[in-house]
Nucleic acid binder design. Sequence first.
DNA 1: GTACAGATTGAG
DNA 2: TCAATCTGTACT
Length: 196
Amino acid sequence: MKRRMPRTFYTHPTLTVAKDLLGKFLVRRMPGGKVLAGKIVETEAYIGPQDRASHAFGGKRTPRNEAEYLIGGHVYIYLVYGMYWQFNISTGRQGSPECVLIRALEPDLNVKWKMQNVKFSNGPGKLCRWMKLDKSFYGEDLTKSRRLWLENRGVRVSRAQIVSGPRVGIDYAGAYFAARPWRFYLQGNPAVSKPH
DNA sequence: GTACAGATTGAG
DNA sequence: TCAATCTGTACT
């Protein structure tokens, strides 16, 4: 069974992809060969030029956010606050600057280890530290990469399990966009990041 | 050339 | 509640 998510998974509308990502697994082959995997339990959608919270608001295009414009399935990663990487996946068609921020993972480990490790992946900055994701992944194609990809492992997520709410840390975007319910997470999941 | 603020985190 | 830490971007 082929499990890696194909291009078409990422080219759907961004809000759809942000929800579809919940329950999928992010898989990272580490430099030493060890494989880390985590179930995506929290995402945020940034839907392009009209979204005041988006780095591409107003059609802004710079070397920093260039990867947002790639066809869905590419990595858009950047540094915030001088110390934390933020891992995003581009969505939509080529030239459309949309993406989904991956905010939290539930480590794919047995129950005992999962609870001990969840604190390493329950936030957008922390999960990048855990999986050693940095600028070297900028623009990486998740449908082809041998060190980072997404898998469907058969986890079923019903609509009732998905909670939506305002995105975190974007008050600068003004009342309207700060209030859009474009953050999605799995209800009751222990790996969802702190601010609820 | 220089100033500035951020899609966070963890300590106090 | 607040400092850490640094770079892309805007402006002089």
